[in-house]
Design a protein around this nucleic acid. Structure first.
Length: 334
DNA sequence: AACAAGGTCAACCGCATTAAG
DNA sequence: CCTTAATGCGGTTGACCTTGT
């Protein structure tokens, strides 16, 4: 255990990669693929250990890397995912196409962390810092606000410091979101979901385990509201089942090539139970074959497939045993 | 121009997990 | 089941760069 055996070998280069080394590695992997990493340096003619080659490929040479500055949307996503996942950089990276875990980790440590602190947010807990730790207003001055995970913000912060766009007909105001029952729990992970009433768009979250659930809540299943520790109004739902919901197990075709598969809820907004429909946007991903037998109840899947009509007061992507999921709706303060 | 301080980021280290024999 | 090798991940380091004095 412990150290990789190749680390003991002599005459292995360390440190920065030269352009020649990059070329050799790129050429080799382009032609033959990496296969077993420990054999790559020998086959590619490099005086490096396999581990070093792997890292160089993943973090620098891979052709699908995006590079360049992080967009505002990427930054917001990182903050939101970090609020749920903590320092699981590889899982966060899997949600940002073209970005590496190392890149995100560096960006977090050098930029986001600092800005969250300046905004009075503890980057570790994603909760407001204590009053005496907050910087003076003058100190927070010119830095643009960083997006804050919704589950951690107070209503005041929602209206003042979030860098979300203003609602328009194409970009409606997020109605609500969900909080996980506890960080690190797989029971419910949906805090990254903002639900525009008119045009909810979800992306399956690769890090979830067990499956993906899609559901729509009916206000009639609400058991009442309460105010959480951050002062955010929470709506509780008693019913273990939503009006329409289903659990779909992860499968390779869902996870690997189509991380960005989308599920839309679309339709005109009216206050009736008959004005919204599901549409599976990527049939190649969420094929019927790919849907598992663990649907919550008979009939619901058929309705979902055919684009059924419901009132999406709220929706969530969650995982695990549905019966253990406590779903909470957070009213948008705006 | 020279230096110091702070920031950035590529790469390494060491541990945990997984796979193979 | 045990051992060992391979792989993956997060934390850390240090070289290089930028900015301020």
């Amino acid at each position: 255990m412990g150290r990789h055996s190749c680390c003991y070998k002599q005459k292995l280069r360390k440190g920065l990669w030269s352009p020649e080394e990059d070329e050799k590695l790129l050429d080799h992997i382009t032609k033959f693929g990496h296969g077993c990493w420990s054999s790559v340096p020998k086959l590619a003619g490099l005086q490096r250990c396999g581990k070093s080659c792997r890292l160089r490929w993943i973090n620098y040479l891979r052709p699908d890397l995006k590079r360049g500055m992080f967009s505002e949307e990427e930054e917001r996503l990182i903050v939101e995912l970090h609020a749920v996942l903590g320092n699981r950089w590889s899982q966060i990276a899997s949600r940002l196409p073209g970005r590496t875990d190392n890149e995100i980790k560096n960006y977090w440590n050098s930029c986001i962390k600092k800005r969250l602190k300046q905004n009075g947010i503890d980057p570790d807990t994603h909760k407001p810092l204590k009053e005496d730790h907050k910087p003076a207003a003058a100190e927070t001055g010119d830095e643009p606000p960083v997006a804050v995970a919704p589950s951690t913000t107070t209503p005041v912060e929602n209206s003042s410091s979030l860098s979300r766009e203003q609602p328009t007909s194409h970009n409606p105001t997020p109605l609500c979101w969900f909080e996980p029952t506890s960080y690190g729990s797989d029971a419910l992970i949906a805090s990254v979901v903002n639900l525009p009433r008119e045009e909810a768009c979800f992306q399956p979250l690769q890090y979830l385990e067990g499956g993906i659930g899609i559901g729509i809540m009916n206000p009639s299943s609400s058991s009442g509201s309460s105010v959480n520790s951050s002062g955010v109004e929470m709506q509780s739902y008693n019913s273990p089942l939503m009006e329409i919901s289903g659990m779909f197990p992860w499968s390779d075709q869902l996870l690997l090539p189509n991380k960005g598969a989308e599920i839309h809820i679309e339709g005109e907004q009216e206050n009736s139970l008959a004005n919204h429909s599901f549409e599976i946007m990527s049939e190649s991903v969420l094929t019927e074959e790919g849907w598992g037998p663990t649907a919550t109840s008979d009939g619901q899947m058929d309705r979902l497939r055919s684009g059924t009509v419901v009132d999406p007061v709220a929706a969530a992507i969650y995982v695990g045993d549905e019966s253990t999921c406590s779903r909470r709706r957070v009213e948008d303060a705006r």
